[in-house]
Design a protein around this nucleic acid. Structure first.
Lengths: 110, 110
DNA sequence: TCGTTTCCTATTGACATTCTATAGGTATCC
DNA sequence: GGATACCTATAGAATGTCAATAGGAAACGA
C-alpha cells in the first residue's frame, strides 16, 4: 500500500479490505479499486501488497473465496466476508478509533 | 510500541518522538514516558522499539544527542530536535492528517 | 557497607507486513 | 495476430517493531 510516494501503516490494510468487502463480494482487483475509491484516492494498494494480505486473511478465516467470472468475462477469485471477518472488522475499527484518538491527543499537546 | 496488547503502525513512532522533543530536550526514557503521557496511556514504547528508532532518526539528522546527567543523577543521553527534525515533524504531521482523513472516509463509506 | 531496587542505555534475534519487480494466462479490441 | 487491459500470483528485499536480555551506576534500606 502507498499514499502518494510514501509507505504506510501496518495493520491498516486489513481494515480497508474488510471494510471494502462489507459492500459485497468482490475479486482482488475490485477490492483494490474500491479501497482507492473509498479513501478518496489516498491509498493505492498494489498486487504485491494485496494478494499476500488476502491469502493471510483467508488463512485466518476472516474471508472466504471462490472462483467465478468477472464483469469482463475473465476468471476471477471472489472474496467474501465471513462471520469472524465481520467480528474482526469491528475489532479493527475500534482499534483504529483508539489509535487515531491517541495520536490526535499527542498532536494537540503543547 | 504497543497499545494494550496489540502491535502498532509503522511510521507513527517517529511522529510521536519528534512531537515529544518539541517540548524540549529529553533522554530516552523521558521520551518514552512523555509519549505515554501525551497519548493518554495508549502507546507504551519499549526500549527495543525506542532506541533503534532514536538511532535511526539521529542518523537521518532529525535529532542530535549529547551525554548529560538526568534528574536522578544518572548518566543519560539527551536528545534534541534539529532544524531538519522540525521540518520532518511538520511533514509527518501533514502525512498523518492525510492518512486519518482517508481512513475516516473509508469507514464512513457504505 | 552490603544487597536490592530503580534508573538508564543498549543489543540481539525473531517476526510480521509491505514494497518493488516480475511473471503469466486469458479475453477483447483493432 | 498483435497490442492492450484484466486478473492472479510470487520472490526477494527492506523496514520496523517486539520480547527478551544485559549491564552499569546511583540511591536506598538495614
Amino acid at each position: 500500500m502507498n499514499s502518494e510516494p510514501t509507505t504506510l501503516l501496518q495493520g491498516t490494510l486489513d481494515l480497508l479490505i474488510l471494510k471494502s468487502l462489507l459492500a459485497g463480494e468482490m475479486h482482488g482487483l475490485g477490492i483494490s479499486r474500491r479501497i482507492q475509491q473509498i479513501t478518496g484516492g489516498t491509498f493505492v494498494v498494489k498486487p504485491g501488497s494485496l494478494f499476500p494480505a488476502l491469502h493471510r486473511m483467508e488463512e485466518e478465516g476472516w474471508i472466504s473465496s471462490f472462483w467465478g467470472d468477472s464483469e469482463n468475462n475473465r476468471r476471477a477469485k471472489y472474496y467474501r466476508l465471513t462471520k469472524p471477518g465481520r467480528k474482526q472488522l469491528e475489532t479493527e475499527t475500534k482499534r483504529w478509533g483508539r489509535i487515531s484518538w491517541a495520536i490526535a491527543q499527542a498532536l494537540e499537546a503543547s
